[in-house]
């Protein structure tokens, strides 16, 4: 599973970072980015899903493995 933050949509609410700090980090303005470029370790997938459903701007997308 891969996770992506759309920086155009992100408004820096930091919900993702609060829910899954192993998956998301934020810059000095509080805008979020995904820590992993590639696949997430499986144990972090639940956190990524929680962030997806809590992001108020619908800025997070999850890509299930295409393999």
């Amino acid at each position: 599973m891969r996770v992506v933050v759309d920086s155009e949509k992100c408004q820096g609410h930091n919900r993702c970072y609060a829910l899954a700090p192993e998956v998301f980090d934020v810059d000095d303005l509080g805008f979020a980015f995904a820590i992993f470029d590639g696949d997430l370790p499986p144990e972090l997938e639940a956190g990524a899903r929680a962030a997806l459903s809590n992001c108020p701007e619908y800025a997070i997308t999850i890509h299930e493995d295409e393999a």
């Binding site: 820096g12 303005l29 509080g30």
Partner: peptide, 11 residues
């Protein structure tokens, strides 16, 4: 105006 405030409210 919002961006201006964000650094003060970052984690």
């Amino acid at each position: 105006a919002r961006r201006l405030l964000l650094p003060a409210f970052a984690p």
